[in-house]
Design a protein around this nucleic acid. Structure first.
Lengths: 195, 195, 195, 195
DNA sequence: GATGAATGAGCTTTCATTCAT
DNA sequence: AATGAATGAAAGCTCATTCAT
């Protein structure tokens, strides 16, 4: 399947995403990014007015990407239990194929709030993603499969848990591969949320 | 109870902990810390040889602090379900009384790995804390109250969940106070882990 | 004869050479050099990654410069005695027209070994110059005009002597100008080395 | 022979001499010296009012030490040629037994003129040593063994040569030990100076 | 759109020196 | 004489951003 040709803006975002996730926001310099792209620093600024703005556009980009993946699962006609497992699998798949996306979320977006303060208030920059998680819960409740609890409590469980596991994996603290834990985790989550 | 007089080293750690947690590691400068203490920049370096070393000593300090709190709970003669709830309450209490401790853990320690790379390999700088969580699980399993699952899967659930909630709270995304969620969360965790 | 237009790198080296020679390596700051050039500190680092590297490039630059001057003399079809005198004259000419070059050699390069440790091992950074001195000796020996003695003993005499005189001159200890001593010195050296 | 008990001032000078010679004036700190002596920095300042003053007292101390050694040779009833050789041997002996003395002379005193500017004008801080060299020449001339040339030309030869050789030796550039060169060097010097 | 030299504020760190004890 | 915590100026270096070309 032919890869859609990326615009220069997207190229920059992809490289910056990787570097920010790998080395951190403050330890990645604009020249670092420009070098990786074989582009001049000056020209980078034609596409993004500042380093902060670049960081904000990247988190939106990730939110849309993850939101779409979730949407595909949400639209399937399967039980909530099955959806739960599919989401865990999908999340871990991304953690494997594009680990920088999850890392960016955890280590750049969640950790450097001062960078995202203006422009990403609340969940403004991750709304696509959060919305799909919301839909997952609401439909589960409506179908009578999930307990009708506070959304954020459920959201914190789901995302905190998955994020924590990916973090432990990234730190090479986990003795097994992420796949190994899928069953346990999906069960734990479902048991916690089910009616 | 009289407050133990803090050594100058502890004073520095406390102030630095607060600033790092509030503004981030890279956006907090040594002069910032020195000013807060009405101390000269040079003298700071009589106590901590570098900014990185200061950061590492702080995470150890937090680990010991949290480890002690957990130990107190672990040593109580109560059911695992009750312990679970007490841990959630304790965690949220700290998130309220000393939010910088949790923030430091999430936003400084977990996020700026390059800073802690040398000297805090694996869980070397948070061992006191992790050890108590381990004891909590193992005793729960031995007493036949918890499922005998992989430690990290359970650890990720517990810590990811709590961390996620505190994060959402810190972002002022939660519509209610943390206390409001205690019951739900403790139930969710216990349901996920129970036999 | 039109002065070859100097590259910015050469401009920096020339100014730094002068300041290092005049004030010493440690007492000359990067801002000092930048100010002398009406250039920003930051930009200096676009040309030389560190103060040490700058110092090393300068000694190579001097070595090449002096090596070329020596080569011109070596290539002349004159007696070794005449060459000896020409070298003394050339050396003193430079000590007069560009005293910073000799001073740099004596007071920066020879004296701050820790700076040149990495990258200038042995005579790695002054090879062009040393090579020509070697040629001078070897040819003198081959022509039967000089005694066949250990190279370093002869080298130490030649360079130590000239360096010492330039030093005394720089300290304004000599009652006469350097030129005054040329005859004596050339004789002394030749007498010491001749067959 | 029992070592004369050193005063604290002398102890400091000896240690500082060693460190300055080994690591350079600017790269040796007062705490470095204090540590080596197991003495407090504050107390060091009871003996020497500043780092510069310490450096100046050290060079005087060395000058007296070397002057005495020269005097012993000068007072012997031997030919100037023999004295020349004895001086070379003495110089190299010191370079071997107390290399820091020669290094200090070459790399601290001669190279960091800004430090010695005030208080060591001309040869004010090395007069004892220079005086003995002067006596050596003058007596050689009076006895009709040496050419009556300008003192400084001869001085530069002698000291520049010896200094250069010790330097090459210190840099481990010389393929042989210093002793190996004694004969050559003494001959070279005598040939250069003799009538 | 594209280049990369240039800026300059600001960072971490060092260290001679002082001074209360 | 002795201590060592404290000071603060100044160093080397970095890097987001600008701008002439």
């Amino acid at each position: 399947m032919p890869q859609k040709r990326l615009t220069k803006k997207e190229q920059i975002m992809n490289v910056a995403l990787e570097l920010f996730a790998l080395k951190g926001f403050y330890t990645t310099t604009i020249p670092d990014i420009a070098n990786s792209l074989k582009m001049s620093v000056g020209n980078m600024y034609n596409y993004f007015k500042s380093k902060d703005i670049l960081a904000k556009e990247i988190i939106k980009y990730i939110s849309v990407y993850l939101g779409e993946k979730l949407k595909e699962i949400n639209e399937q006609d399967i039980s909530t239990k099955e959806k739960t497992k599919k989401i865990v699998i999908m999340y871990f798949d991304i953690a494997k194929s594009r680990p920088e996306m999850i890392d960016y979320f955890l280590r750049v977006y969640l950790s450097n709030r001062e960078v995202f303060k203006d422009g990403c208030e609340g969940m403004a920059c991750v709304s696509e993603f959060v919305t799909e998680i919301m839909i997952f819960f609401e439909e589960g409740v409506q179908k009578g499969e999930l307990k009708d609890q506070d959304f954020f409590s459920a959201f914190g469980l789901f995302m905190g848990y998955l994020g924590g596991m990916v973090f432990l994996n990234g730190e090479k603290i986990l003795p097994n591969k992420l796949n190994f834990y899928v069953e346990d985790i999906a069960d734990n989550i479902y048991n916690a949320l089910k009616k």
